[in-house]
Amino acid sequence: MSKTEGLSRRGFLAGASALPLAGTAFAQAPFPTRPISLIVPFAAGGSTDIVARLVGQKMGELLGQSIVIDNRAGAGGNIGSTAVARATPDGYTLLLGTISTHALNPAILKTVTFDAVKDFTPISLLAVVPNVMVVHPSFPAKTVPEVLKLLKDNPGKYSYASSGVGTPLHLSGELFKSLGGVSMNHVPYRGAGPALNDVVSGAVPIMFDNLPSSAQFIRSGQLRAIGVTTKERVSSFPDLPTIAEGGLAGYETYTWNALFGPANMPRPVVDKINTAANDSLKDANVKQRLEDVSAVIVGSTPEALGEHVKAELAKWAPIAKASGAVVE
């Protein structure tokens, strides 16, 4: 080998050694370097959208990049969830998932377009939102025992409204019927808003609703609250008993909001998003505003959210099956 050839070979090797391996370069690449899309699989204005915008804004500040809220409503959250399941797993497309997208839809959708466990990377369980049983002020019963007695004495006479077949609000009513051994007619609507309007007007006497939606009507006296659906009482209505303590042992329903990404996201990216999400929940302004809408702040590890989804699937599948709810 000539002297010139040796120098050329040594120069090439030196240059090559200075270049990082492709995998190392990817692992060490800064994140994020551009805006992140947070898909909310429901219309703007609902409790899921509220949580997404509150937490997303603060996360964007902490990450140094904007988090753009993308409302993709339809099919009970299935359209937006499917979009995230099929997205590139680089951390730039996230989902604000709920009990509907990751526990109820797999049990009630006739055609399932994603696997709630295998097709997503869990990041953090953000908050739990309680539901509440409300009635029109003219409704004769004022407590859980009185409601149960009235329904048992008048089977099939009374109806309850919900935001649609197979929604958490529908299944809250079905669980009440099942545990209480009572009969009510289900009146499904295209969303919680129209259903709530008809209960406020007296067209339908009963509804199970997200507490944030009903709170103003309860405070103004336009609706009477019978009980919250969570295991514990809520800070925004401390004098309102839970349905379980009101006489229906074992009753518990709720809505939750959690952050997911597509499956197989790099762990360093997951950890960075998780830290930003959980730190956002500790911000004084975010905490106060979430508490104002009766959301119970959680914040979790990715592993804890993964186990939560599995437990929710196991809990709700038999309830959904018993309700007979099937969505095309």
Rank of each mutant, 00 (worst) to 15 (best):
Q65F: 00
A203Q: 14
P130H: 11
G324F: 00
M133L: 15
L171G: 07
H170A: 06
S294E: 13
L96E: 05
S183L: 01
V228S: 09
S300V: 04
A317R: 14
I226K: 03
P268V: 04
A258F: 05
M59C: 04
S201V: 00
A52E: 11
D198A: 05
S163I: 01
V128Y: 06
N71L: 10
M59W: 08
S172Y: 00
A215P: 00
E291T: 12
G15F: 02
M133F: 15
V327F: 09
L290P: 01
P35E: 05
S100P: 07
N131E: 15
V327Y: 13
V228D: 05
V286D: 00
Y189H: 14
H136E: 07
D198V: 01
A27Q: 13
L223A: 08
R190H: 12
L21M: 11
I69F: 08
R267P: 03
A263M: 05
L179T: 07
S8D: 13
A258W: 03
G56R: 01
G193R: 13
T24E: 13
Y251I: 10
R190A: 14
A14Q: 09
T242Q: 05
F42S: 08
Q57S: 14
G221D: 02
S214C: 00
G45V: 08
V327A: 09
S17V: 14
K282P: 03
A107Q: 00
G181D: 01
I319H: 07
F120R: 10
Y251A: 08
A107C: 02
D49A: 14
Y251R: 06
G221W: 06
I36G: 07
L175I: 05
S100N: 13
N257H: 11
L305Y: 03
L13N: 11
V128G: 03
A87C: 03
T121N: 12
S138H: 11
W256P: 00
N210Q: 12
Q222N: 15
I218D: 05
D292L: 12
M207P: 06
L175K: 09
K157W: 02
D283Q: 06
F12R: 15
